[in-house]
């Protein structure tokens, strides 16, 4: 990797200023993705600002919301009592990701900002508009088994790889951001963006902005939840398709529902219409199947990922069945 300057500020403002001063500087927390990207030459930041000394690791409940600091470790969040009690879907999603070693290094902020795992993005000898705008999308006509079926453009068909993000988008989370222009709040659903003509931009963060925390409002989804991750080995693999499903049941009737998919789009893919179709209906396979049909409207596959057109709806049905404990 390139030589870089390494700073380790203790004050949030200093960190933000340090980033703003140097073009292409990067924050580093757990480094579980950034180091890989640097070793492969995908990113060559001249300055790394290590934010691990900032006091952003707390998990606390306040005013009907669970606030998780950006530096809370994935492993710690997944085991946190309040998370398990209030937002078990998030714990399940976190535990589905990576390996125990990585979860013990990776932070919540870093997890949501991890880059796509598209092979073309990682290989500097291949075309990739995300890495090198204008060079073309290698995956479009290439090997696209892992790629998007929703929301892609002809510039990029990569998918967002995080499991945690799929749960957060389903749970109506909000991202807390601090930047050169002050603090702001952004709905988690608006953090990630679709590729459009500028796939080099993964998120709607402004230059110099730092994610400080994520907040999840208390909700009724404490029991009937399931995070289903489909992959070809039992652990330590990115999702072919994943589904975050949360139900609020009154007897067998669905009072409220949350549904999102991973591994299908450039951002965690909330399924709002499918959610609506579930409300007021009995928690049966027929209901779930209808929701899955709605969820899949507009899906389009490429040469190697047409299996997702079957795997995705099946996974939605399965996740909802598991959430509702329907045999």
């Amino acid at each position: 990797m390139n030589q870089f300057q390494y700073l380790r500020p203790t004050k949030q403002q200093a960190a933000i200023e340090a980033l703003a001063r140097t073009p292409n500087a990067q924050f580093i927390a757990g480094g579980t993705n950034l180091l890989d990207l640097m070793k492969r030459g995908v990113l060559e930041p001249p300055r790394l600002i290590d934010i691990n000394r900032l006091p952003l690791g707390k998990i606390e409940r306040d005013n009907g919301r669970l606030r998780i600091g950006a530096l809370a470790l994935n492993g710690a969040v997944a085991e946190d009592k309040q998370v398990l009690e209030r937002q078990p879907l998030l714990a399940q999603a976190l535990n589905a990701g990576a390996s125990a070693q990585l979860r013990n290094m990776a932070t919540v902020g870093g997890n949501m900002l991890q880059r796509t795992r598209c092979s073309y993005f990682y290989d500097t000898a291949m075309p990739c508009n995300k890495r090198e705008p204008g060079s073309g999308c290698g995956a479009l006509e290439g090997y696209n088994r892992m790629h998007a079926i929703f929301g892609f453009s002809d510039k990029c068909i990569a998918v967002h790889p995080s499991d945690m993000s799929v749960a957060l988008v389903a749970l109506d989370a909000t991202v807390l951001i601090s930047g050169p222009k002050g603090d702001r709040r952004l709905p988690f659903a608006d953090l990630h963006r679709l590729p459009g003509d500028t796939p080099q931009k993964d998120t709607n963060l402004e230059p110099g902005e730092l994610i400080t925390a994520v907040e999840i409002p208390d909700g009724p989804f404490t029991k009937n939840v399931h995070y289903l991750k489909v992959r070809e080995r039992a652990s330590y693999a990115f999702a072919l398709v994943s589904v975050a499903a949360a139900l609020s049941l009154d007897g067998n009737t669905i009072k409220d529902a949350r549904l999102a998919m991973g591994g299908v789009a450039h951002k965690p893919w909330r399924l709002a219409e499918a959610e609506k179709s579930l409300i007021g209906k009995p928690a049966t396979e027929a209901t779930f199947r209808q929701a899955a049909d709605i969820a899949m409207q507009g899906a389009k596959a490429f040469k190697h990922n047409s299996y997702k057109l079957r795997m995705a709806p099946n996974s939605i049905i399965q996740a909802l069945k598991n959430a509702a404990s329907v045999a």
Binding site: M126, Y143, R233
Partner: peptide, 25 residues
């Protein structure tokens, strides 16, 4: 291992893309 024949270059060339069994398998 999967190759992109347009470039004659492997697209699976690390242990994240090329899967060996893990303990759980």
């Amino acid at each position: 291992a999967v190759m992109d024949h347009r470039f004659g270059r492997y697209v699976t060339k690390d242990l994240a893309d090329y899967h060996v069994p893990v303990h759980a398998d």
